[in-house]
Amino acid sequence: MHSETYPRATLVSGETPLTHLPSLSENLGINLFIKRDDVAGSPLGGNKARQLEFYLGAARAQGADTILITGAVQSNFVRTAAYAAASLGMKSVVQLEERVPERDGTYHTSGNVLLLRMLGAEIMHYPEGEDEAGADAALRARAETLRSEGRVPYVIPLGLENPPLGALGYVRAGREIVASGQAFDVVVVASGSGATHAGLLTGLRAAGSTARVIGSCVRRPKAQQEARIRRVLELFSELTEDTRAVAAEDVQIWDGALAPGYGQVGEAASEAMAMMAGREGILLDPVYTAKSFAAVPALCSAGEIAKGARVLFVHTGGLAALFGYQSDLEGGLPVLG
């Protein structure tokens, strides 16, 4: 089957911009472009809108009136799901997992959490942030209660045992990039749950692109993330034959900006935020896009991205989470040289 055969709720109207970044191109000695998926879908946008088109499409096809989803406290996926549900006349139940240690009150009340409350989502809490099976089980238990009350719930799962339906959204994105007529040597994207990374790689290859696709780790170190992407692709092959175009060596991972860990702001991420904001006036978030963009200057410095290469950075959004990191950013960002 192909991605076009699955039910889809339209949350992303039209193509997102793909534009040249002249200042950073000159600074890094490459031809750098950006895919602005930070403006995809809902207000404050983000890559999750593309994924949710297929989850919500499936939910509507099943007659669901309530969606349930789990993620970190400042999860953009959870916030975008609540928005999408509201826009389609559905209720949302969101579960917030404690994945990031020693956060202050701002982290637990502002940013995406504030938006969830404004969107009228039912909020659950889960104490363990690295227990995907347990988090999914808690959602399914809540879904059973809702079902007994006459509701029709649809669970958007997190664990690796589930088919990555949302990855279909990034097959579409990969095809969109190739259809733009722009050819790239390297494409850099955040690699977390794996759906965006695996879907994008699949879409690019299926559309004929030979670009090197680099997933920059935001949650797990390189070895663990590489294994995860391979597993996601294996599961994804059950949904679409497009994965046949992906070779084993196409899975490439970089984790140079992961430290000090998921949802924590390190030096590499701070410098990446300063570079993109100061030279191009584009904001990155500390959880995903700062850590993913950090791969570009680092790989340029290491000679792994050649001078003059055509490079695409996929901006996956997440800007609402900035406000949850106020205490980390109060001193400002590094001063550019």
Rank of each mutant, 00 (worst) to 15 (best):
L56Q: 06
G57S: 06
A58R: 10
A58F: 05
A58I: 01
A58S: 13
A58N: 11
A59P: 01
A59Q: 04
A59S: 07
A59G: 05
A59E: 08
A59W: 06
A59D: 05
R60Q: 14
R60M: 12
A61G: 11
A61P: 06
A61K: 14
Q62C: 09
G63V: 09
G63D: 08
G63Q: 07
G63A: 08
G63I: 02
A64K: 01
A64Q: 10
A64N: 06
D65N: 13
D65T: 14
D65R: 12
D65H: 09
T66L: 01
T66Q: 08
T66R: 05
T66C: 00
T66Y: 07
I67K: 12
I67Q: 12
L68I: 09
I69F: 02
I69D: 11
I69L: 11
T70P: 07
T70D: 09
T70M: 09
T70V: 13
G71Y: 00
G71E: 00
A72N: 05
A72G: 12
A72T: 11
V73T: 06
V73H: 00
V73P: 00
V73K: 00
V73N: 00
Q74H: 04
Q74S: 03
Q74T: 02
Q74F: 01
Q74I: 03
S75F: 02
S75D: 02
N76F: 08
F77H: 15
F77V: 14
F77Q: 15
F77T: 15
V78P: 01
V78K: 00
V78H: 02
V78D: 00
R79C: 02
R79P: 05
R79M: 08
R79W: 06
T80Q: 14
T80R: 11
T80S: 11
A81W: 03
A82I: 02
A82G: 06
A82K: 02
Y83W: 15
Y83A: 14
A84M: 09
A84F: 13
A84D: 14
A84G: 15
A85V: 11
A85M: 13
A85S: 13
A85T: 09
A86W: 06
A86V: 08
A86D: 04
A86P: 04
S87C: 12
L88I: 07
L88N: 06
L88H: 03
L88Q: 12
G89Y: 14
G89A: 08
M90E: 06
M90N: 06
M90W: 13
M90Q: 08
M90I: 10
K91P: 08
K91M: 11
K91A: 15
K91I: 10
K91E: 15
K91W: 12
K91Y: 13
K91F: 11
S92L: 03
V93T: 11
V93A: 05
V94C: 14
V94K: 03
V94I: 09
Q95D: 01
Q95N: 04
Q95R: 00
L96D: 00
L96P: 01
L96R: 04
E97P: 04
E97S: 15
R99P: 02
R99T: 12
R99Q: 14
V100E: 07
V100W: 09
V100A: 13
V100S: 10
V100D: 09
V100H: 11
V100C: 05
P101W: 07
P101G: 07
P101K: 08
P101N: 08
E102Q: 15
E102M: 15
E102H: 15
E102N: 15
E102F: 15
